[in-house]
Design a binder for these strands. Structure first.
Lengths: 205, 205
DNA sequence: GACGATACCAAGCAAGCGCTTGGTTTGTAA
DNA sequence: TTACAAACCAAGCGCTTGCTTGGTATCGTC
């Protein structure tokens, strides 16, 4: 399963909007605007203009502005959970599984879904509490993937720290790359992955 | 120099507002509101109500709402730079200096200045570009402290990764603790510091 | 080629926003 | 006591916001 086929399968199951369709294009533009200007500073007029319609027409597709934010987050988590799962399955050793997870998360943050991932991190508070609960349930599945791999490394005696703490630290560290990492800066995502592994003292395994 | 005397010295030099004064109290309440609701969702009426005055009276102390956000950020950086400097100076070995920095940053994020630090991380985009430039200059001083210590560890052969990358990863990891760490959760800041050091494979030194 | 759903437009409403204004109270010092 | 500035209030202006409304294209289907 490569990335494209994973995406197509999710689209087929109606779990993620077709990026080529009207809804998918809007969500993509919304993610960009939300990341660049923030959710609150982005007006429905901005969103409408980005896809070339009138602001009122947005409400034919979404009932509220917040529903757009939620859709961006939900679809992003669904896609990335599937990508992570595939990355873990494809790796063999425990250490390689962790490296695959790190690499996959760096890619989701700094690649195609980067805008949406940034929104997930920085616009969290703009979601209503009810929506937060719903999105959190999805995120738990995602987190479980990480914890299982980290736990095995802990049992192998390779990881000295608590898996829960490590996962949260890695969440922060990897998310934060969105604020400084630029692919054209002479550092590839593979380099970056290697740096993280090195930082954790796992290079010589 | 303990924390209190550092604060007092900055207040005396007019670099930080007296927390007991009108301006200092407003900035503290503003930081809380900005963290809890976000800058955009916080109205000048909210800010005024938090200190018990009318919304229009705010503009006797600050020319614009953004000036309040900037003041929160500037004063927080000034205070924390001084605290970090003191923490580094007080430690002896290179490894202890790093541990002192980690501990100090965790404290600034999860202690007294926590609200303001969260604002610095999550409300950055709400600052005008001109203000961002000004605040960035202050932050560079702060960052230099870290880089010097990390560089020494690198030269000692203790740190395998690039100091610049490590600092940025640590920025993210430590900042992110504000979203999940709770002092009453059975994990002290000392524990947390130890976990970070362990995660970096620096325990046995 | 009539029909119904889907997608959209043009216009604007009600509410909330940052900020201004003109005037009053409070604190300080001669 | 007087004088003056700093601190604050009460009211509201002008603008932007999310969203609604009533109507018009567009398109697949029988």
């Amino acid at each position: 399963m490569n990335q494209d086929s994973i995406l197509r399968s999710l689209v087929a199951d109606n779990l993620v909007s077709d990026p080529a369709g009207a809804r998918g294009r809007l969500l993509h533009e919304a993610a960009k605007l939300f990341r660049d200007k923030g959710y609150e500073r982005t007006t429905v007029r901005d969103l409408a203009a980005a896809v070339g319609i009138q602001s009122g027409s947005l409400f034919h597709h979404f009932r509220t502005k917040e529903e757009i934010l939620k859709a961006v987050m939900v679809e992003t988590i669904r896609l990335n959970t599937a990508l992570m799962q595939a990355a873990v399955d494809a790796a063999n050793t425990h250490r390689d599984k962790l490296q695959a997870l790190i690499r996959a998360e760096l890619e989701s943050i700094n690649g195609q879904t980067g805008e949406a991932m940034a929104v997930l991190v920085f616009e969290w508070r703009s979601l209503s509490e009810e929506s937060q609960v719903h999105v959190l349930e999805l995120r738990d599945i995602y987190e479980q993937l990480w914890l299982e791999v980290l736990e095995t490394l802990r049992q192998d005696g390779v990881l000295a720290a608590d898996p829960f703490v490590v996962r949260r630290m890695l969440t922060g560290a990897l998310s934060w790359t969105v604020t400084w990492y630029r692919p054209d800066g002479g550092l590839t995502l593979d380099d970056l992955t290697a740096q993280v592994v090195a930082m954790m003292g796992l290079t010589s395994l």
